Amino acid sequence: MPDIVVTEFMDQDALDRLREIHDLHYDPTLADKPEELAALLADARILIVRNRTQVRGPLIAVGRKLVMVGRLGVGLDNIDVAACEAKGIAVRPASGANDIAVAEYVICGVMMLLRGAYLATGDVMDGTWPRNRLMGRETSGKTLGLIGFGAIARETARRARALGMAVLAHDPFLPADHPAFAAHETRPVKLEELLAHSDAISLHVPLTPDTRNLIDAAALARMKPGAVLINAARGGVVDEAALADALKSGHLAGAMLDVFETEPLPAGTVLAGVPNLVLTPHIAGVTQESNVRVSGVIADAVLQLLKEQA
Rank of each mutant, 00 (worst) to 15 (best):
F181D: 04
L30Q: 09
E289I: 13
D245S: 02
P188E: 06
G296L: 11
D239W: 09
V62L: 02
A151N: 12
R19M: 05
G122A: 13
S198N: 09
V297M: 13
I48L: 08
I21M: 00
A232Q: 11
L59W: 13
V228W: 11
N213W: 06
A310C: 07
G235W: 15
T143G: 01
S290I: 01
D43V: 02
A61Y: 14
D300F: 06
G145T: 09
V67Q: 03
L24H: 01
S249Y: 15
I283C: 08
G145Y: 15
V270W: 15
E193R: 04
A218F: 08
D32N: 02
V302R: 11
R71T: 10
M68K: 03
L214V: 04
L247R: 00
L174Q: 11
D258A: 02
G63F: 10
A44S: 09
K87V: 06
G109K: 13
E155I: 05
E138A: 00
I298E: 14
T287I: 00
I107S: 04
A38V: 09
R131K: 10
G148Y: 15
D11C: 03
R115L: 00
L265Y: 12
P93C: 12
L146N: 14
E240D: 01
L203S: 07
I201R: 05
A200M: 12
A233Y: 15
R133F: 00
V292S: 02
L277Q: 09
V302A: 11
I79R: 06
G136V: 01
T262A: 01
T139L: 10
V5A: 01
S140I: 05
H178E: 08
V110K: 07
A157C: 00
Q12T: 03
N78V: 03
G96Q: 06
V278Y: 14
G145E: 09
G127K: 15
V274K: 10
A180M: 13
R234P: 13
G88Q: 06
V270P: 14
A38L: 06
A86C: 08
G150T: 13
A241N: 05
A301Y: 13
P206N: 13
R234D: 10
L146D: 15
D32S: 08
D245Q: 08
E308P: 04
T121W: 06
D239C: 04
L277F: 14
G226D: 04
D123G: 04
D171W: 03
V205T: 11
D11W: 08
I215C: 01
D123C: 11
E104M: 04
A233C: 10
P264I: 02
F149Y: 15
M68I: 04
L15S: 03
A284F: 08
L144E: 01
N98K: 07
I147P: 12
P58D: 08
E261G: 06
L257H: 02
L146Q: 14
V74A: 04
A169I: 05
I283T: 12
L18N: 04
A153G: 08
R50E: 00
A182V: 06
L66D: 10
D32L: 07
I60S: 03
D199N: 07
